[in-house]
């Protein structure tokens, strides 16, 4: 297939040019706007250079948002992977082939829901008046718990929705990966009287290290897209207990103030942080494959 042909050029150049324009125009504009003092309600703006960034680091609400975003990232990635691995092993060990096929369809339903729908589904579940989760609590204690309005439970409650979507989905993928492994090492370990969890912990999981790392990576990228869940379920509240960086940038740039330059400077910091972190991580993950 190495004959001289125009195909690769014709097939690659136009899409790549379009992609580059679509990607670089907004990102360069983001940096440009971040260096100004543009506000949505005023037409005039001028360059203030790094003033927005200096303000950011004196902004306690911004520092809080960084903290919440980091907690969200660590909690959802860890919980998703734990749930997914344990579920996959459980399904692998106990479910019949027919059951597995059924489960692999049912378990991807949550992740396919629009995030807005998933958020509403669980907002109803947590509802203190008639939420299903609160019926047993009301029976036991007499009073409902408003999970989404308590600073101590709000973030965890939203995280449950994220893990519900992604943990179940990843368990299907890990189950499929377990099924592709050669059976011999498992059988050998069983002959040596290894317990089920030992077989998986010492043989199955290490054999899947590379794809599992890729899944961790995918989840880290996807966890950054938690905005929809938080917007619908808590709007960043109570107070600022669930206000992640994108939520704060949204409210600064759009809702409360229209300070689009200030919001953009936040977005620029996020962009640099994620691009650098994910590029390094990706190269590292690739080395394992």
């Amino acid at each position: 297939m190495n004959r001289k042909t125009s195909l690769p050029l014709l097939f690659l150049i136009p899409p790549l040019v379009v992609l580059a324009i679509l990607a670089f125009v907004p990102t360069i504009a983001a940096v440009n706007i971040a260096l100004q003092n543009r506000e949505l309600s005023f037409p005039n703006s001028s360059y203030v250079w790094f003033a927005n960034f200096i303000d950011l680091f004196n902004d306690r609400r911004f520092l809080n948002a960084i903290r919440i975003s980091l907690i969200w990232e660590v909690v959802t990635v860890t919980a998703t992977m734990l749930v997914a691995i344990l579920l996959a092993i459980f399904l692998y060990e106990t479910a019949s082939l027919r059951m597995r096929n059924l489960v692999t369809v049912l378990f991807i339903i949550p992740v396919m829901l629009p995030r807005v729908s998933a958020a509403f589904v669980w907002k109803f579940m947590f509802n203190p008046l008639f939420g299903l989760i609160n019926y047993p609590i009301k029976l036991l204690t007499g009073a409902p718990v408003d999970f989404l309005s308590l600073p101590s439970t709000a973030l965890a409650s939203v995280a449950i929705v994220d893990v519900w979507q992604w943990g179940l989905f990843f368990s299907v993928i890990i189950l499929k990966l377990l099924e592709t492994l050669p059976p011999q090492p498992f059988e050998a370990a069983r002959l040596d009287n290894a317990r089920t969890w030992e077989v998986h912990f010492y043989i199955g999981i290490p054999m899947l290290a590379a794809p599992l790392l890729s899944l961790v990576f995918v989840k880290m990228v996807e966890s950054l897209r938690a905005f929809d869940l938080i917007y619908v379920m808590t709007r960043g509240g109570p107070g600022i207990a669930t206000e992640t960086l994108d939520m704060y940038a949204f409210s600064q740039g759009f809702v409360e103030a229209g300070k689009i330059s200030y919001a953009s400077s936040m977005a620029v910091l996020m962009m640099f942080a994620t691009i650098i972190a994910f590029t390094v991580l990706w190269k590292w993950v690739r080395k394992w494959q």
């Binding site: 690659l12 790549l16 992609l19 990607a23 125009v25 907004p26 990102t27 504009a29 983001a30 440009n32 706007i33 543009r38 949505l40 990228v221 950054l224 897209r225 905005f227 960086l245 994108d246 940038a249 949204f250 740039g253 759009f254 689009i260 919001a263 953009s264 977005a267 620029v268 996020m270 962009m271 994620t274 691009i275 994910f278 590029t279 990706w282």
Partner: peptide, 24 residues
């Protein structure tokens, strides 16, 4: 490089694309 460029577009936080696009 092309593959990595395409993948890295997914790293962009949506809010970082959306805010400048409001202005544009």
């Amino acid at each position: 490089d092309i593959q990595f460029f395409v993948l890295s577009l997914r790293f962009l936080p949506p809010v970082a694309v959306a805010i400048p696009l409001i202005a544009i």
